[in-house]
Design a protein around this nucleic acid. Sequence first.
DNA 1: GCCGTTTTCGGCCCGACTGTTTTCAGTCG
Length: 444
Amino acid sequence: MYNNDFIANMLDKIASLLEIKEENRFKIRAYRMAAACIRELTFSVAKIEEVKKLWEIPGIGKAIAEKIMEISSTGSCETLRSLVEEIPESLLDFLKIEGLGPKRVGILYRDLGIQNAQTLKEFALNGKIQELNGFGPKIVQKILDGLEHWEERKGRFPLDQVVPKVQSLLAAMRSIPGVTQAEVAGSSRRWKETVKDLDILVTGDKEHAGSVMDVFTAYPEVESVLSQGATKATVRWTMGIQVDLRFVDSDCFGAGMQYFTGSKEHNIALRTLAKDKGFKTSEYGLFKISGSKETKVAGQNEEEFYRCLGMDYIPPEMRENAGEIEAALSGKLPCLLEHSDICGDLQMHTTESDGKNSLEEMAQAAIALGYKFIAITDHSKAMHIAHGLDEARLLRWIETIHKTREKYPQFHLLAGVEVDILKDGSLDLEEKVLRECDVVVASV
DNA sequence: GCCGTTTTCGGCCCGACTGTTTTCAGTCG
Ligand SMILES: Nc1nc2c(ncn2[C@H]2C[C@H](O)[C@@H](COP(=O)(O)OP(=O)(O)OP(=O)(O)O)O2)c(=O)[nH]1
Ligand SMILES: [Mg+2]
Ligand SMILES: [Mg+2]
């Protein structure tokens, strides 16, 4: 069964090949939009049996729906097969080189017949590439650098690995004179599990933009500066992650956050909607268009930005163009689950087996978190290394939990066990003992 | 390729930075 990511990746591959082929850019965007849209779906596309059902998904039309059906059942499609006859798949790797996009990759292939890394390096060194239209010494150097650092390429980073680093960077930015705000944006603000890069928005007086850029590019973690302009800079840190900084005026903070938080697909959908309603939106604000006149109607405040477009405020976590804009327009946005919505935990270990904290410590910590109940479910005896409980120990342990429970009358301290499922499928503890538990978790 | 209470054709988000462009294309966010 081909999953949604597999199908989306294949549509993205078709899009990239079409780009190198210099197909119509809106056709290419249609493939990219369809891919992004499939990644956001909460059900498996391959399970859909009728083309019509696919077709009903916004962003997927008749042509792409049929291709999806084909990919779902065969793992590929005719469009892709005939495309790779024209445009070698190996060219797709070149797109990852800084400074090489579909146009230049296409020229390299068509004019010089370059389709693998060896010949790319060869032609970069013998001066042939530099002679091409649209190429020069700087691009050639970037190609050579890109080939050199091919193996060091990093993929996406787990969010928890980068959060502490970004907090330190924000602190450094906030201490620059003239800076009013520094916040994390992009996929980190949308709380994606992994992020490709870090996106930082800094606001302040225009005359301080230069010093912000200087501090950012001289930050200790920086390995190289990829670009640096008046309001935007990109660097790569030694740990391999890229960091993007955007600077806007203080009164553009809301619009800047809206832009830089994304997602790209959410931004495009929102901007299209704004346009239909007679507005223009950018990182500088929301502008009402009348004739040739533009009047700024929002910019400072992100909530206001959405309100002026006639919709509820959309939390960053929902900004993926997965129906949230339509929901916000009709006041039907779902509520996000908050930490405060968690009222208990039914799987917890204590020092009685392999936990780090005692029964009382666990109970008190749960109460401090605002929980109404927890279940203590230490391991059963098959887990020797975890010092698992046998029947006799479990019975005594249940008694201890019952006694402890009396100290916390407002709180539900449940007695339980995490019982192993043995190789033959039976449980590790006798049923009559398990019956004494409030909660039994069975695990393999 | 997708889409539609101003539509089935003619639009499709908007802006910054770089390099080689003598007026802007390519790439990226
Ligand atoms: N309007 C508009 N905004 C864009 C576009 N591309 C990127 N952005 C905005 C929205 C993105 O969330 C933000 C940061 O871009 P990134 O490429 O870093 O993507 P993002 O952080 O969403 O995901 P990532 O984990 O980095 O892949 O910039 C675009 O084509 N149009
Ligand atoms: Mg990002
Ligand atoms: Mg970025």
